[in-house]
Design a protein around this nucleic acid. Structure first.
Lengths: 328, 328
DNA sequence: ATTGAATGTGTAAACGTTTACATATCGGGA
DNA sequence: TCCCGATATGTAAACGTTTACACATTCAAT
């Protein structure tokens, strides 16, 4: 049985209200009472029960972070940033992983509401647009993805612009038939596909095609091999995520294609290996830390003031041009 | 104001005790009452308040997972496995990231205790051995690392055996001067160093040296470059983690060394790129999913029965021999 | 001397559950 | 008929906080 405020009160010779006031640091407290309480707390090693606090306050000092894939470095970098900001504001973070499964997402949203978290950070799946009712939920901030229809706090990068920039780099690099590999269930895919298409304005014949698969390494590998079998085969590839890219890149190797001569390559995210394979890979680096920080800060503001106007923060991906996107 | 069990009781025309009993599914309940309550729950969209439950039960249906580095794929794979097991048992997971900082670790242990989590999974930092008092904490299971002194539930791999196997592969591959790069503050390092040393039994002259740095990519890069400057330089390297390995591998590339002819290479973990760089890299693959699952299952058992005997589960790393560890 | 604000403290209610205990009804065996 | 166990339900206390309210004291201004 752990200690309660009652034990402290008894030890300090005062009422529980006084103890609570000392601990909270608000209301009138005499210097004498303060000292006695502080001494008692120290002697007993008392620590408050957050569950009781949460019940009384009707919300906890925890925020929920719902990720679509915790093994994706982009998201783990975000987690770390979020956590840092949360701690600074006196919150802790409940991290939940959906694997892009709308059912798991719904489960977690329910759970977090039941846990009375103070707020939620969410990278929504496509399906959640309809089911999500912000009125029933704690303060909510979207990141990485947002709904075109529902107006909510969000932090995203401009996927269309980034994809266009990435694709144009390959076009400028002299490639003639460019294939695009995109996530299948992913929310961001549509923006990136749009940017990919837009890059070909006036030279539509240089687009090889748009291909989609679930965002896993193995799927990227499989899809890439399939695309390579086509006639004509592409002479360059854009990948919309690190995971797809890792699998696709491996497929190119396995097929003995030489870059950048036989094949151009560029992808989203900046996987660890992109810098040191030969040739190094041109990428769009997403500012994951900045996204996480911005989203967390936004959530803090939303928690403090539920009535404040909605903000939609846009960040840009950074193009890092390396050897894989320029022929010869 | 959210709904409470009271509202349901009113709607169903019974007492809150009956509602609670229907929800918990225990005690005597008439068929009639059950139906009325279930109808009321559905109509009102009632969902129980976990905070109140936790207060009453003196513990929550949450377990804490304290990781030393969430960005390390080894740990994120573990997270996913842990979460899956937890969900299956009706628990959710509070993930905390310490970045190997003993202070952050202490902070989180305190926090989790205050949150009255049902149990904790911990990969301890070296410093925590002394500060950790299992008597004051919820049920605790260690993973990836354990204390030689304190007897606690744990799931680890045999680092010594694995490091020895990895090193011996390079020796068998024909290398003459092998350097070992190990994490500096890491707990696992000492076991791996021991295994590294043991591999040289009877041919100590073939060991180039033992070098340590904090387990970050940049540090691995820096350290590798430094080691390469030595006279004589090593002709092979063992790295004790993916992060160090990524940086070190990059350094080898940057120095224009050719593998496996000029330089042998082998590392712990199986980073995404290890399979498709040229030559592919020999690794010890750690069974992260198995570790996470075993640890979580163990914690569940410990929660159910605090008196059960301590178990220490040992798993083995799997050697994957690829091209980088055999000369010519 | 009287008033009233400022200061300090205690009592008790409330947050939403679970559950021990009391109570009530029913049916069956003596 | 009487009693007892099985079934069913309700009442109230408890979990550990915070805080509205009441009350008491002090001190300064009238």
């Amino acid at each position: 049985m752990s200690l309660s405020i009652k034990d402290v009160a008894q030890r300090a010779g005062c009422s529980i209200a006084t103890v609570s006031r000392v601990l909270a640091g608000k209301g009138y407290i005499s210097e004498e009472a303060r000292q006695k309480v502080e001494a008692a707390v120290k002697e007993l090693g008392y620590r408050p029960n957050r569950v009781a606090r949460s019940l009384r306050a009707q919300k906890s000092r925890v925020i929920g972070l719902i990720l679509s894939d915790i093994c994706n470095p982009f998201f783990s970098e975000i987690s770390r940033a979020v956590e840092r900001v949360a701690i600074r504001h006196g919150y802790s973070v409940l991290i939940c992983n959906t694997d892009e499964d709308p059912q798991k997402e719904a489960h977690y949203l329910k759970l977090l509401e039941e846990e009375k978290v103070a707020g939620i950070l969410l990278s929504p799946t496509r399906a959640s647009a309809k089911s999500l009712d912000p009125a029933l939920l704690p303060p909510l901030v979207l990141f990485d993805r947002k709904f075109p229809t529902v107006h909510l706090d969000s932090v995203v990068i401009d996927n269309e612009e980034a994809a266009q920039k990435l694709t144009r780099t390959l076009l400028d690099g002299g490639y003639r038939k460019i294939a695009g590999l995109f996530g299948a269930k992913s929310f961001t895919a549509s923006g990136r596909i749009a940017g990919f298409k837009a890059a070909f304005a006036g030279m539509e014949d240089r687009m090889h095609g748009i291909y989609q698969a679930p965002a896993f390494e193995e799927e990227g590998n499989r899809l890439m091999k399939e695309v390579l079998k086509q006639e004509p085969a592409p002479d360059a590839v854009v990948c919309s995520s690190a995971l797809l890219a890792t699998g696709a890149y491996r497929a190119l190797r396995e097929n003995g294609l030489r870059m950048p001569a036989d094949m151009g390559f560029a992808c989203f995210d900046d996987p660890a290996w992109a810098g040191f394979v030969e040739p190094p890979v041109t990428v769009i680096r997403q500012p994951a830390t900045a996204i996480g920080e911005a989203a967390a800060e936004l959530l803090m503001k939303r928690i403090d003031d539920p009535a404040r106007p909605v903000s939609e923060i846009g960040l840009r991906g950074e193009l890092i041009e390396r050897g894989s996107s320029r022929r010869g």
